[in-house]
Write a protein that binds this DNA or RNA. Sequence first.
RNA 1: GGGUAGGUGGCAGAGUGGUCAAAUGCAUCUGACUGUAAAUCAGACGUCUUCGGACUUCGGGGGUUCAAAUCCCUCCCUGCCCA
Length: 403
Amino acid sequence: MNIVTDEKRIDEILERGVISEDGILPTKEGLKEKLMSGEKLRFYMGADPTAAALHLGHAQNLILLEDFRKLGHEVIFLIGDFTSMIGDPTDKGAARVKQTKEQVEENFKGWVEQVKNILSFEDKENPVQVKHNSEWLGKLNFGDVLELASNFTVQQMLERDMFEKRMKEEKPIYVHEFMYPLMQGYDSVAMDVDVELCGTDQIFNALAGRTLLQKLKGKNKFVVAANLIADEKTGELMSKSTGTGVFLDLSSNDLYGAVMSVTDGMIKPLFIGCTKLSLGEIKDLDIKKNPRDAKMKLAFEIVKLFRSEKDASEAQEYFVKTIQNKEIPDEVEEAKTKSGAAITDFMVEFGLATSKGDARRKIEQGGVSIDGEKITDVNFVLTKEHDGKVVKVGKHNFRKIVF
RNA sequence: GGGUAGGUGGCAGAGUGGUCAAAUGCAUCUGACUGUAAAUCAGACGUCUUCGGACUUCGGGGGUUCAAAUCCCUCCCUGCCCA
């Protein structure tokens, strides 16, 4: 596969806005020059399988990775199965709980499935390569680790803002957490990469790799740091803890809905980071004037990109029907029960409530209905006449009663 | 090694013998309002319940007491200071 050196395309990738202001290190010009040189480069991006699902924040980096792949460069998606057992201290107020090998295995199962539409693992000429860092990190012995560690000082490690923060808050910092940048750095050496893609929160770790590569191989690695997806106005990051994370293991309908419930300030960053629309098209959308329509377009584009156009249309239809018009959807998961079953037991059994008490509460608060009729009695019992009717809990949880 | 302060619900953080299933904030859930926005407001937020209450929870174990998150013993874990 030939290396594409089309300046316009390279500029569009580097200028898109996904990459942070000074997110290309050491310099943007340097990287552009390298891309223009026609030399085949090796890119990589890593992610630790600490969660079962990837979210849109990862996705934006992966889309970027694919852009570079399409220019003809070698691209590696690194699964941090070894590093995730230690845990990256980034953005954590406390040390991450170590994960077992089983948990890690369990988590990255399905990752490829979640992103196969945006990353070409199956490309004949130049497929994305998948690697695991346990392959090399697991083989280092204590001496090797000491050797690596001797390239950095404790002061350098302590410069990381979150270590500083923890020092200030008198919270523990474990010795093995200092190893994290070393490990991520060694990934670069082991794979002998030219460019690493990461989020801005990962720059410290990525630079450790730059240092190591320089010292051990005399190689000049570039770091491309993508902006984290954040609300334009409030600066709030998209994250699970604030309830704004959009995960990629959701069904198409839920993925669409999850995008719809994102704050308005996230619309533009998501368009730029997680869709294929050109900057011109995004500009034409006039997000401010009609945020709802812009968001629907965004949700559509995202589902289309990660699933298919058909899924996107269906998800949109579902959304309009059940959420906007509050109708019962066409297809509802069936729940086989017995005549005489208490509604509370039914709810617990089919995941509509976490406990009987929770079920009772939801009924008392008016959150439960059958075919549109609100249930007010917590002792309500299902009978034959409810066969085929649909129980609704909250705004969008439905189950069809089947005997 | 010495000294000292701590370990509380998903998280942060109050509570030092009964009124504690444990304040408050965040997260979460339900409702209202909406664009399933956001913000806001109201309510809920251990399990079971015949709705009287019962049962399990405050690092682990043991003890004192009519009564323990709170007191004692012991073990485990962490911060800080000194060495």
